[in-house]
Design a protein around this nucleic acid. Sequence first.
RNA 1: GGUCUCGUAGCUCAGUUGGAUAGAGCAACAGCCUUCUAAGCUGUGGGUCCCAGGUUCGAAUCCUGGCGGGAUCACCA
Length: 596
Amino acid sequence: MDIEKTLKDKVIAAVQKIYGQVPEEKAIQIQRTRKDFDGDFTLVVFPLLRISKKPPEQTASEIGEYLKSKVDEIHDYNVIKGFLNLSFQDDFWLSFLNTTITEKDFGKRKNANPQKILIEYSSPNTNKPLHLGHIRNNLLGYSVAKILETQGHEVVKVNLVNDRGIHICKSMLAWQKWGNKIDPEKAGQKGDHLVGNFYVKFDQEYKKEVRSLVEEGMSEEEAKKKAPLIQEAQEMLRKWEARDPEVISLWKEMNRWVLDGFDITYQNLGVDFDKVYFESDTYKLGKELVLTGLKKGVFFKNDDGSVWADLSDEGLDEKLLLRSDGTSVYMTQDLGTAHQRYTDFNADDLIYVVGNEQNYHFKVLQLLLSKLGFSWAEHIHHLSYGMVELPEGKMKSREGTVVDADDLMEEMIQTAEDMSNELGKLDGFGEQEKNKIIQTIGLGALKYFILKVDPKKSMTFNPKESIDFNGNTGPFIQYSYTRIQSLIKKAKDKKITIPDEISRKPEISSKESELIKLIHQYPEILTEAAENYSPAVIANYIYDLAKEYNQFYHDHPILSEEKAAISQFRLLLSKQVGVIINSGMKLLGIDVPERM
RNA sequence: GGUCUCGUAGCUCAGUUGGAUAGAGCAACAGCCUUCUAAGCUGUGGGUCCCAGGUUCGAAUCCUGGCGGGAUCACCA
């Protein structure tokens, strides 16, 4: 990135010297030369024609000639239409490589202006296990946190667990009625799954009741309200809010089961949190804020006592903030938690990883906070991601088409094992190492598949076909990395040493310089990913690098002793590629095995 | 209906923020195991970048209007 900046300055100087006028910075467009043309960097001269008052080709040639003679690093140029392609000396790339090799934590940035960034993700409900949608959420959140850390920011990962409400009562009620005092241990089942089953059971029984009421002549709408089960659930919620000891104790127990289950899922997925909030602690927050807003005249009170915000000036509707009975709604508590987090952590930025179905909610949230006079409202970012759909369409919990997170991970690992066995890849590995490897591969496939897609887009997940081990996939990249490791090991066995830097100048092929240029791009890519919160940028880049590497080294022998200098140079390049692949995958939350 | 969003190869997706002849993988077909490990590599075919205008040297990318898919507009969370 520094290279492009200095190049830009040189071009500005050149234009000034040749045409006697200083161009705007914006007019200097430097980009990497496309692969099918000669050169390293390309200057687009079209914007400079206004200054040169000459045809594109001539302008390009004049600038090219000037740069070639005045700038040491540039050893040649060529012109195609309005594009000036500049070639740098091999020495230049070599010295670049030499400096990156000695750099510790290549790609990590010392940030002159580090921020404290709070990122919320996951946010599960304690009435059912995590599913595929949560996986996308968790992976995005975790990965973005890692990426921001490399940019020198201080990141706090938080989880806000929704552990209260009518849906929790539904599972509790079903357990009371049909559970026979079963618990996860007796059932031999993860607690979140057990509780989720009771939630489903409730829904089934409830539907039965509604159906029979309708048969008795009641309207469906009325039946849904009058069914005994839903009334009991509502009664339970009232008891919960009144802190009824029996209900509270059951609630605590069942929540514990679910949370223990979640912990296992999180652990398997490889994500974690610095702090976990519970909605049962925070749901009352925000009321104060709304009341102050009311006092200030920012909000208004309806005849029935409910409190609203009028957003019609902003082109939105009116939004309820307090019910007529004075209780808070979702928005009220989100106002509260935002405020609390901001003051608790004194954070500069708040990132919420939440599905795009809540775009409207966050737009309103931000608006309300700024109406309340909080200047930090603009530091709220909604990292909005699209739905994960199945080939058959959307996942529907009622139709049982939800892909369970635990099941999916297990299935991926199983597939990895089957494939590995089929190819004989696991022969000679111990049981423990074998398990470690198939787990790394299976989960790597899953994680990479999800992260390589632009977060804001909705995506299709095909459980059967998506887990490919070829092409733009996690396992392909993992494989490339392990090949590099094995190469380095073999070199050691053959007593070929990898130098710390390259002193003797080998001949650099265009393919090799392609790899060096890719290495050079890495910090830039990182920054870009951090700026728009997109692990996809890194994922696709890592794939490009791995592919480029595989293509080149496939048919170039590199462990030849008679050409020790070339071998050493290529080993060094391999090692560097390995470092980037490894660190890139780590940023995505994906492990890479040493062998596979 | 209002608002937001997406539309790129048969399928799944990239496309460096407006640049050169739009790229990968999968699927199909044809090849490559004395090389580091074939979970790999090489090649072939496959495109109205949803449509129509506009902006300019230049548009998949920006603006307007359509068409199509999705989300959302609750005293649910």
